[in-house]
Design a protein around this nucleic acid. Structure first.
Length: 316
DNA sequence: TATCCGTGGCA
DNA sequence: TTGCCAAGGAT
């Protein structure tokens, strides 16, 4: 069986040292799965996983904390709905994660792939997973040019090693990450090489999808000051919901001092901000000193604005 | 079904 | 430097 080759490869070359592979704590595994959604292993491993667990060692500790505290620990990781859903899920399941994948998938922030990942990695169930790595490996191995979810799930079930589901799924992810990479795959070192259809032209499996260039949005960021404090809002819109930040507008106020410019690239647009220091002219949700802002959850673009402000020390 | 949601690694 | 894209899910 070709799956045996994969299993043997994993024993030698797998990333066995990853901390979420060396625990049986379902919460730790669940947390890693959420943090790793659309996020590279390196980022989670080096900057977020351990600090979060230090603050929130159990799912109950997440449930007992205010959402603002959870967001603060998520600061800089992005996709903040994940943190909100984690907090909500901790509350709804009262600190105890269900084992049934139907119940898992019903929880906010847990889709089919994450539910299966928790099922197999935390509870040892016989299930396939389907993350970006696995999708790419399956597309190439079976010669699929499109990432059709239904077809991929069928192939994932078909390819699953029933005897070693845990190792099989981890191995597929490691293979996708280390060998069957998006760019410059190392087909010569692949344990699936002999039966792989896509090896002839790996870059066409799946076919690259052309993406439109993202638009640029130009706005004004207002750094309003009063009595040595800065006016901030807590964002209500979907983007960066729940995080604190400086007011953004389209027009300039009557009186201001230029502080500089900052840029931030988001998934669907690029934000270019002209940062202006001015007196209170818009409604805010609170006034804070720089030290107090340090305790709030703010996004990367607002961190850049803050850095600009501190560097120029312009206000009285 | 298509779009939205963050940030940073990497070639 | 620019663009792709990473352990996806919600709307």
């Amino acid at each position: 069986m070709i799956q045996d080759k994969l299993f043997e490869w994993y024993a030698i070359f797998g990333r066995h040292e990853l901390p979420w592979r060396n625990t049986k704590d379902a919460y730790h595994i669940y947390l890693s799965e959420i943090m790793l959604q659309q996020t590279q292993v390196k980022t989670v491993l080096e900057r977020f996983y351990f600090p979060f667990l230090e603050t929130f060692p159990t799912l109950k500790s997440v449930a007992d904390a205010p959402l603002d505290d959870v967001l603060k620990r998520w600061e800089g990781l992005g996709y903040y709905t994940r943190a909100k859903n984690l907090h909500y899920t901790a509350l709804t399941c009262k600190g105890i994660l269900p084992q049934n994948i139907v119940e898992l998938e019903a929880l906010k922030g847990i889709g089919k792939s994450t539910a299966h990942a928790i099922g197999v990695f935390a509870y040892g169930q016989v299930l396939p997973i389907l993350d970006a790595n696995v999708k790419r490996v399956l597309c190439r191995f079976f010669g699929l040019s499109t990432k059709d979810e239904k077809v991929l799930w069928e192939r994932a079930w078909e390819f699953l090693n029933q005897k070693h589901p845990y190792e099989h799924n981890q191995a597929l992810m490691d293979l996708g990450s280390l060998i069957c990479t998006s760019r410059n795959p190392l087909c010569g070192e692949c344990p699936l090489h002999v039966k792989c259809i896509g090896k002839i032209d790996p870059h066409n499996y799946p076919l690259p999808q052309k993406k439109n260039a993202i638009p640029v949005r130009q706005k004004i960021a207002l750094v309003m000051y009063k009595d040595n404090k800065l006016g901030l809002i807590q964002r209500k819109e979907r983007l960066l919901h729940g995080l604190w930040g400086f007011v953004q507008t389209l027009g300039r106020p009557n009186g201001y001092k230029k502080l500089g410019r900052v840029e931030q690239v988001y998934t669907h647009f690029k934000l270019e901000l002209e940062v202006l220091l001015c007196e209170p002219i818009k409604e805010v949700d609170g006034w804070f000193s720089v030290e107090e802002i340090d305790k709030l959850a703010i996004s990367t673009v607002d961190k850049k604005i803050l850095k600009l402000l501190i560097a120029s020390k312009p206000y009285p």
